[in-house]
Amino acid sequence: MADLTIALAGNPNVGKSTLFNALTGKHQHVGNWPGKTVAKQEGKLIIEGKHLTIIDLPGTYSLSAHSPEEEIARNFIVCGRPDAVVNVLDAANLERNLYLSAQILETGAPMILVLNMTDVATARGLQIHPEVLSTRLGIPVITMAASRGQGLSELKRLLATLARTPREAMVGSSVCA
């Protein structure tokens, strides 16, 4: 069985890289996105015999392709057909972060929401109801405080249950190249 591909998407400064490091450890490879000067972070995670390739997408506020970073993130989510998009959100700034989630939602890609920095949100007196998000959107929602290592094992457990979603074969294209 071929590797499953997982994309990490989210706004800048939401702790995406910390999560990427926590998931992949030393098994990282840094290159460039084809034709772009933006760094491409790729790593491996083996969990319960399952091989996962994890791609850290550039941090963006939207998928509207106004910048090279947005274009890369969008192309990978839409054309790279990852087996799951892990959308990392800053729980303390939930509404702004959900805008990107809404756009990922529109691509129809399989997704998992990770509400990171819940400790900061709680300190600001914000009460988050992940179960509401999960029921409304119909996808798994995990709360996390990556800096303290909370929620990481839960995400790993979820990733271990992933199965390849049957989808049409990929065709190359200039935008999707």
Partner: peptide, 15 residues
């Protein structure tokens, strides 16, 4: 509005 949301909207209008 959250400051973050407002900033996003400002960015939109700037564009």
């Amino acid at each position: 509005l959250d400051v973050g949301v407002l900033e996003g909207m400002i960015d939109f209008w700037v564009r």
